[in-house]
Amino acid sequence: MTKYVIRRLLWAIPVLFAVGTVTFFLARALPGGPFDFAGDRSLPESVVRNLERKYNLDWPLWKQFLAYWWDLLRGDLGPSFRSRSLTVNDIIKQTFPVSFQLGMLSLLLGLAIGLPAGIIAALNHNTWLDYTSSFIAILGVSIPNIVLGPFLIWLFGVKLGWLPVARWGADYTEFYLGFIPPMTAKFWRHAILPTITLGTALSASIARLTRASLLQVIREDYIRTARAKGLRERSIILGHALKNALIPVVTILGPLFAAVVTGSFITEQIFGINGLGRHFVQSVTNRDYPVIMGTALLYAVLLIIANLVVDVLYAWLDPRIRYE
């Protein structure tokens, strides 16, 4: 197993190189450049020339490419062309922890609600409990964050005044280990609404998948064998069916994790959270090449790690899967 993990991690190097290369040339292939506009006005030709010279954009592409990787190997993701006082390292350091916290909490909320809801629905297949939870799940999947977020703000922030409406993480700079927040009441008060906003859709899709997977497993022969042994329905579901049913759920958790911890553009915008999500979007419209590269590579690293964890979990869930 250790050997397998090491081999997978070594494989990550060419994968990251490929992702970086494709992203690098795709970004450059976009028409326009980073200094076409400053606000509404376009910059004078000479200023653009000077800026391009400053950031080595006048070099031939292959030289820029090699220079980028050379810097990257030394842990330097380069400067941001737009936020000129910040490097990409700064941006990630400042915004990623909050996005990670939001994503993790939402995912945990999604699992905490989605798994039990899916199990309850499957256990009570075709009863009102099943219909109710399926209805709520469809509702949860269908309501976009851009509707749910403002609604929660209106209800709990404005009408009832129970919770702050925005600006999670605006005040803290230091986190334990770089990403673990202080567990203060203030943190939680800020975290509740965005977590619910992002977590609702997650719990709904996890519930639907768990239900479908469990219903399929319940029809398997070995579940009939378990019934024939006289086991209680609870032991049959928890002891015999769940481990089998979780395999598809675990499969989606990998990509889902990578997707939510790197920030949600919409949720972060609604709640005024200084997260990573907007940099994914804005870096492209701004042609901010180093930020595009930095966010893409970060996403790739997280995806690789998450999928590796999923594969290791497979081996634990299903003994037929063994890695030599």
Binding site: D221, Y222, R224, T225, G239, H240, K243, N244, D318, P319
Partner: peptide, 9 residues
């Protein structure tokens, strides 16, 4: 082949 649970010893 299918009547024994594959994930339990």
């Amino acid at each position: 082949m299918t009547s024994l649970n594959p994930v339990l010893t």
